[in-house]
Simulated scan of single mutants.
Amino acid sequence: MKPLHADICRYEVPFTAPVTVRSVLLASREGLLLRLKCEGATAFGEIAPLPGLHAESLDEATSALAAFIPELSRLNLNSSDERRRLLDEATLPPSVATGIEMALVNLAALTTGSLPSFPGAFPPASKIPVNALLAGKPEAVLERAAKRYAEGFLAFKLKVRKGQLDEAIASIRAFHEAFGDKAELRLDANQSLDFDEAVRFGKALPPGSISYIEEPLTDTALIPEFHAATGLPSALDESLWQRPALLDEIGPTPLGALVIKPNCIGGIQRSLDLAAKARRMGLQAVFSSAFESSVSLGLYALLAAVSSPTPAASGLDTASFLADDLTDKPFAAPDGRADPAAAWRDSQRVKPGMIETIASWRL
């Protein structure tokens, strides 16, 4: 069913501790919710560009969203084909396109009383694994890893920072000694290392200690050479939207995974299309968030659940970094796994006191 009413709502949620994104220090997470209503249903989609990651600011996203909302009146059935055509005709920042599509997908599902459905998708897995985030000094990394492992987490992700490589190597060695092949460790360098230091770092790691390293190089095109020098597989994340053609140029051999952030890729169906391409290339499709609220995490969990018969561990542990959340029941993976159907249903139960309506339309 097509939406009849639209609201833009704004929110701000503090982090449990300041978060650094590409040298930008953030004390809180700010964003928007697009609230769509029709007879008998209210649905939400999240628009949350992350400073340091997205090109668009929150104010720019707000303006783009407000300018687009009248176009929603052109929808007839709110079908997947209609949504794609409407969004493809627009020029929208990726976070805005994703939030609009999210709200429309959610509205279509809520009006039928079913889970969101996607063309060509697999039946949703009943559970999806989630990787736990690690940070800090080696002692803190190992302490958090041991705690999350005891809870049931079997996949972990550690940030690798330029200028702190010795510390990262110590953390990786300690993790490998503690867990061996009982737990998976992924790294993320956020395109921070030049080629020579990345190779030195890679050669210093114990054999078999990591699954892959996300975006190890400032020049992503050198990933094949990095793989030849170290034997380590990489994963593409930022490059997927910064330089999309590189995926085909690099090919699957030096890669282990594609890390898919829908609000950077620019849409829900685009993200599923990319996951399908990863599967055809023999790579993991790892759905990941950009510190969004549980409104997004619920749908992302469902995307991971329908993207593969055996979903890879997703990067959705970011809710644990928020001091509060927008939903009555925040996203959780209590045993290292999340229930995607329950997470999606919970994602649409937003606490009114957490959001402020700043604009409204009758469509």
Rank of each mutant, 00 (worst) to 15 (best):
A135N: 06
T42M: 02
K182G: 11
A183W: 03
L217D: 11
G282T: 05
P3V: 13
P94F: 15
G40H: 01
H176D: 11
G40A: 00
T327V: 14
S289H: 03
L185P: 00
I8N: 03
L193S: 15
I223W: 08
A313L: 09
T218F: 06
D219R: 10
R345H: 10
L363K: 04
L222G: 01
T253I: 10
P18W: 08
G256A: 01
G336V: 09
A278S: 12
Q269V: 14
Q242N: 14
L158F: 01
P206R: 07
A90M: 12
A41I: 06
L107W: 00
A103F: 10
V19N: 09
L34Q: 05
A125H: 04
Q164H: 13
E30V: 00
L322G: 05
G52F: 03
K2T: 07
Q191T: 09
G52C: 04
A228G: 02
E184R: 15
A235Y: 05
P340Q: 11
A338H: 01
A145R: 02
L25N: 08
P129H: 11
T111R: 11
R345S: 10
S293P: 15
P18T: 06
H54I: 15
E225T: 10
L258N: 03
I47F: 02
L299I: 13
G31F: 01
I265D: 01
D273P: 08
D7A: 06
L32S: 12
G136E: 02
T218V: 14
L255T: 11
A97R: 15
T318W: 00
A338I: 02
G353F: 08
F195S: 04
V96L: 02
V199Y: 13
A278Q: 10
R161D: 14
T310D: 13
F179R: 07
L303F: 12
A343L: 06
P18Q: 07
E151A: 13
A333Y: 09
R173W: 01
L110R: 12
T111Q: 09
A332D: 14
E39P: 02
V199M: 13
A235R: 11
E177N: 14
K37R: 14
S289T: 15
D339Q: 06
E143R: 11
L217W: 12
K277F: 01
L154S: 13
A140I: 07
L86R: 07
I223A: 02
I69E: 10
E167Q: 09
A228P: 09
S294C: 06
S73I: 08
A108I: 00
T220H: 12
I250R: 08
E249I: 06
S360P: 02
N190K: 02
C9L: 15
T253A: 14
L36M: 03
K203D: 12
R337D: 04
L240G: 08
S288P: 02
A108W: 01
I169L: 11
P70Y: 06
P252C: 08
A332V: 13
Y300W: 09
I223V: 15
P3R: 05
S73H: 15
L272N: 14
G152N: 06
F156H: 05
T220Y: 09
A150N: 14
R84Q: 15
L72E: 05
L193P: 12
V286A: 07
P352M: 03
E46A: 08
A323I: 04
L322P: 04
A97L: 05
G208F: 02
P119L: 14
R200H: 09
